[in-house]
Design a binder for these strands. Structure first.
Length: 576
RNA sequence: CGGGGCGUAGCGCAGCGGUAGCGUAUCUGCUUUGGGAGCAGAUGGUCGCCGGUUCGAUCCCGGCCGCCCCGACCA
């Protein structure tokens, strides 16, 4: 492709509201353009990288034995009511919905469990037809609370979604493993440094699930990992080993009330009394669809609400307002005391971090007073225990006890053992060899194509622009004519362009009448892995320059040997 | 949904009660040709939308829409 006939504009300055590196560079390189919040257009150049990413996913999925299908994006409400998701997604306001002319409700699918299960239930009746894994790579719609970072979190985006159907759990394990292997191959081919972590099952429900995380500072997720044993989990899911307790081996002191006028917050009390936050017991009052619940944990720890939801067995959880806290516990916010709670009326759960709490400080159950010498076993009667404190960097690993680390990550893929939730709800069953009917055991899998592409930019860029991995570059090679006005230079560049194309090379020819500096800047910004310069100094010696984008390493080759030299560099880049 | 901020040329921004300006990009000419050159000229704007105040509003006031950031959780 010749730039002079292409539709491509690079820009010096990114839109002022762009934050993430990938957003800025993809915009500046002229590959994406924002149409509305979380809605992006891909230019011809942007589409090339996007398509390459999509192709890698398709190739690996086909190789894994999954079969491509196309499921409707426009889906009727009835389908979603069969699975029970309409009401739920509606409540979470994630669904884009619309009405047809007869006022029937439809949605733009955010995912396709219902549609695919409906397809399979009509076709599969026997265990002999299983397993089967179906997938598609199509646009998804989600009315995200907060779209951001360009392609990273959009409201309309291209997503691979796969669904496996098996006769039995062992089958699911195999299908899941096949997806896991395909995912690893895909992200490796995309040149990404990724890690696989345990994840919470989230809104969809199900059992085991793992996320593929690309480590990058702009990641929206926090990833907990242990370098010693390889444990890894999303922060929402992360567990920890036993943290050292501040009250170990202490003898019990009597319970005394201490005045703490106007000191409701943990930090206030800590400073006022000159103690550590770990010495305190925090009482948090939550509201759920099942009523109020009080969570007790050590003052220096934070609640992992996802874990707390599991402990309580509730779907929704939010801190109660000040008025509600007072109404529920009889104490104002900041002064709630476990020993003064109306235990018979309130549900109370305690975190393992205060299991043996002795001589702790906590609220006195009335304004401006706390208590010291609090002994949990003696002063309160906890009936339900759980682990819902959020992991912190340095906490002990739940497996090996070594310190945990926390990093930012971008979730590019998710694999999920779903079980029979949808097959039961939608009646997708098979008959086994004994003639008995069972719901199919499902897995569900997703990869964000645009997000994967953007993640590659997050991990591979420098001060001059994008440094595409060969596999995702819009074009692998930029051929730059340094002086198109000079006939011999132009003719040599034209000839080399033809030769590269005839050799099947993926080449973009910058034949514009611009100064060399402009072309170098643009080539670096867009990030072609290989650049070939024709003209100027080297050309006088009958040479061309071949530049590796990654490190700007330059080698020269005689004009006649340029094709071979490009091939050699390309082979090097393929090799890593 | 709450808080904050911003909507002025394709992009980045300034301005200000008297109907708009800078940089960049674009176009023309000259000059230049190895890291976003220089000179000269030119094109380009219902100053987000609606209403109010005023002799007069891009500016002040009100409403709406759009966009961005933070929060929606720790007492």
């Amino acid at each position: 492709m010749r730039w002079s006939r292409y539709f491509l504009q690079t820009v010096r300055e990114a839109p002022g509201d762009a934050e993430a590196v990938s957003h800025i560079l993809l915009t500046r390189a002229g590959m994406i353009r924002r149409l509305a919040a979380g809605i992006y257009s891909l230019t011809p150049l942007g589409l090339r990288s996007h398509r390459k990413c999509e192709r890698i996913v398709r190739e690996e999925m086909d190789r894994s034995g999954a079969l491509e299908v196309e499921l409707p994006i426009l889906q009727p409400r009835e389908l979603w009511e069969e699975s029970g998701r309409w009401e739920r997604y509606e409540r979470e306001e994630i669904l884009f919905h619309l009405k047809d002319r007869k006022a029937g409700d439809y949605c733009l699918a955010p995912t396709a469990e219902e549609a695919v299960t409906t397809m399979v239930r009509a076709g599969v009746t026997s265990y002999r037809q299983l397993p089967v894994t179906l997938y598609q790579i199509r646009t998804k719609f989600r009315d995200e609370i907060r779209p951001r970072f360009g392609l990273m979190r959009g409201r309309e985006f291209l997503m691979y979604d796969g669904y496996s159907f098996d006769a039995g759990e062992e089958g699911l394990d195999r299908s899941y493993a096949a997806q896991d292997a395909a995912y690893r191959a895909i992200f490796r081919r995309c040149g990404l440094d990724f890690t696989v972590v345990q994840a919470d099952s989230g809104a969809i429900g199900g059992t085991a699930s793992e996320e593929f995380m690309v480590l990058a500072d702009t990641g929206e997720d926090a990833v907990v990992s242990c370098a010693a044993c390889g444990y890894g989990a999303n922060l929402e899911k992360a567990e920890t080993g036993r943290r050292p307790a501040p009250w170990r081996d202490e003898t019990e002191a009597p319970l005394v009330e201490v005045p703490t006028p106007g000191k409701g917050g943990i930090d206030d009390v800590v400073n006022f009394l000159g103690i550590t936050a770990a010495r305190m017991i925090k009482c948090l009052v939550y509201e759920s669809e099942q009523g109020y619940a009080v969570a007790l944990l050590r003052g220096d720890l934070e609640v992992n609400e996802v874990a707390l939801k599991h402990v309580l067995g509730v779907e929704h959880l939010a801190l109660a307002s000040e008025e509600k806290v007072e109404r529920a516990t009889g104490a104002p916010v900041g002064y709630v005391g476990p020993h003064k709670l109306p235990w018979e009326k309130l549900r109370v759960v305690a975190d393992e971090s205060i299991r043996d709490a002795v001589n702790a400080v906590t609220g006195a159950g009335r304004r401006d007073w706390h208590v010291a010498g609090f002994v949990l076993r003696r002063d309160a009667k906890v009936e339900q225990w759980g682990s819902f404190a959020q992991a912190r960097a340095g906490d002990p690993c739940p497996r090996c006890g070594k310190p945990l680390a926390i990093a930012r990550g971008i979730e590019v893929g998710h694999i999920f053992k779903l079980g029979t939730k949808y097959s039961k709800a939608l009646g997708c069953a098979y008959t086994d060899e004994k003639g008995e009917s069972h719901p199919a055991v499902m897995g569900t899998y997703g990869i964000g194509v645009g997000r994967t592409m953007a993640s590659a930019v997050e991990q591979h860029h420098d001060g001059d622009g994008i440094v595409w991995p060969l596999s995702l570059a819009p074009f692998e090679i930029a051929l730059v004519s340094l002086n198109p006005a000079d006939a011999p230079t132009r003719e040599a560049a034209d000839a080399l362009y033809d030769a590269l194309r005839q050799a099947g090379m993926d080449v973009f020819y910058d034949d514009r009448d611009e100064r060399p500096g402009v072309k170098f800047k643009d080539a670096d910004l867009i990030g072609f892995p290989i650049r070939v310069n024709v003209g100027g100094r080297a050309f006088k010696e009958g040479q061309v320059e071949i530049v590796r984008r990654r490190d700007k390493n330059v080698r020269t080759a005689p004009l006649a040997g340029a094709l071979e030299a490009v091939r050699a560099l390309r082979a090097e880049l393929l090799g890593g």
